[in-house]
Design a protein around this nucleic acid. Structure first.
Lengths: 342, 342
DNA sequence: TTGTAGGCGTTATCAG
DNA sequence: CTGATAACGCCTACAA
């Protein structure tokens, strides 16, 4: 009574159950290797003491943490939320825990987070996109931590990836835009430096224009961070252009939402006066008005597949099999034919 | 050459630098306690070997991880994103790392995550809301892990909280609704079981009605998970009622966004035919049309203050000082006077 | 200022 | 099937 108990350890449980620590450990990790009666006794002791294994000790002894780390560029919007949730769900089913940190699109922060996660004993890492300092990959190699890239699919890259071709996806959308009759095209891209997804999306638009026989002059490009306000700001700039573009393709739905907001504020009708497109098809895309024509990315599927593949890599079952997830254009009200020039 | 190096340890660095492991450790943790020249040598060895301290070992030896854990109900929408980002920023400034898991609003999952985080050596925990099994608090006590509740302010609760009064905030909003002339009020609440924030919001509406001399009959209540589709569904049900409510107050902006979407789909004009309100004032609230009248919660401020307080608790500087963050009603287009009954 | 040595809580190897 | 016992990598008195 009155004695301050601190957290019980394996030793406490062993004493309570009248067995050795080894047996307790076995009861917890390989229950089938211990006889029913003793197991009962041990588990009861565990229960009554409220014992929880010390993770650090376990990691150190087992050299395995059943933990997967993920570094995503941002938690501020829903772009990564759905895919990550699926990733986590799948991991859990396989007995792994997910640790997430966000780098705020800062390569230096990402480097630090990677080190932190590795130091914490992560068995594997999920990274977003391929673009990063090679030194990071060497670091991961040295620590023998498998890593998988998602949200991007580049089969020839140094790391295996489970994702989609940002270029193809955006190209398909651009083709829809062209098919609708647009010829003066503007794009609000996310910052492309250190972001291969953003870069590929721009590339996709360029490819479509070129295939349609349009020159570089047909595209006006603005780069800005992936934020609603920035999208709004960029849209305003574009609308000041002469001649005004007839369509504004945005690097993602967040930028597009900003563009739509600004259009409304400026009294510009979408899609009657100007069309707008997004990318990702997050929930937001269907809620704004007009609803966004965008590229649908099967985030959940990607998340689940990435989890399965990464676990396989961690467990040595796979060397890292790249996988391409297919996307498709979702047509909604924000894209229509360009206004009659008359 | 060709030799597979595995991760270097303290010992490797010590050997490389020609000092003892203790000195290397000091260079990393208390650099001022080692002379300049040796420090140089050690840091150089650290650099050239690409050494990263093994976290598990460090935690075990120091019984301190400089890690704070947070369990949030969901990552699927932006409700917690902004506050958590601020929380993380503030922690980082103070030398702590944040580990996040989401419980998907499942108490059992939350319990497990808490244990996981504690077992991982979290120095402190951020929890959302007060409602949970007392056993969990005992567990935290036993492990001597300080915890702080956020997104809710209940000074008399067992745990210190940094947050706002959900009841007062919602009551203020309900008063605005009443002031606009509404008398047939519906509410789409989040699930209240195990969610004190949701419950308090309902309570806030009830208080306002009562203060206005309205009976229980004036309020129609539906509870549903915090998802856009659920909000839409609930809205549809409410619109089938006879007489139809003139305003639908939603438990948060996500539900409200769903309601607005459904209204549009049903051809019901907001706010002309029915008003809608939200809660939280996430970015979404200003983007949907009509823009949402809602309760603004200063998420960033709350996150930063929570971080400061929790760190103080961890470092023994504070016993846990509850703090109330003030909210205010933001008036936008979605709330107007009820339609003329004529 | 620096080195020595013990211990943190588990797992894993190897006997018994 | 169960029990000693040696790691695991680092921190921290304590001693020099």
């Amino acid at each position: 009574m009155g004695k301050t108990r601190s957290a019980p350890t394996l030793t406490d449980v062993a004493r309570e159950a009248g067995v050795s620590t080894a047996t307790v450990s076995r009861c917890l990790n390989t229950p089938e290797r211990v006889i029913e009666s003793t197991r009962q006794r041990v588990l009861q002791a565990v229960e009554s003491l409220g014992y929880t294994p010390n993770f650090a000790a376990r990691v150190m002894a087992a050299k395995r943490s059943f933990t997967i780390g993920a570094i995503i560029p941002t938690m501020d919007n829903a772009i990564f939320a759905r895919g990550l949730q699926a990733f986590q769900d799948e991991l859990r089913e396989r007995g792994y825990t997910l640790l997430v940190s966000s780098s705020a699109y800062d390569p230096e922060a990402e480097r630090e987070q990677i080190r932190t996660l590795v130091a914490r004993g992560a068995d594997g890492l999920l990274l977003i996109g391929h673009a990063r300092d090679p030194e990071i990959y060497e670091y991961l190699d040295r620590h023998q931590v498998p890593s998988l890239v998602a949200w991007s699919y580049v089969p020839e890259a140094r790391r295996p990836s489970v994702g989609f071709s940002n270029a193809c996806a955006m190209r398909a959308l651009a083709e829809s835009v062209l098919a609708a009759g647009h010829r003066r095209i503007a794009m609000i891209s996310g910052l492309t430096e250190g972001n291969d997804r953003a870069l590929s999306r721009v590339e996709g638009v360029r490819q479509a224009l070129q295939a349609a026989g349009l020159g570089e002059g047909a595209l006006t490009l603005i780069e800005t961070p992936y934020e609603i306000d920035k999208g709004a700001e960029a849209f305003r700039q574009l609308m000041a252009l002469e001649p005004r573009p007839t369509v504004v393709m945005c690097g993602n739905d967040v930028l597009a939402a900003g563009a739509l907001r600004e259009a409304k504020g400026m009294g510009i009708a979408v899609p009657e006066q100007v069309s707008v497109t997004g990318f990702d098809d997050i929930e937001l895309a269907a809620i704004v008005s007009p609803a966004l024509t965008t590229v649908h990315v099967p985030h959940r599927e990607m998340g689940r597949k990435a989890a399965r593949e990464l676990v396989a890599m961690v467990e040595g079952t796979s060397a890292g099999q790249p996988e391409c997830i297919s996307t498709h254009v979702v047509t909604r009200q924000s894209l229509a034919a360009p206004p009659d020039p008359s």
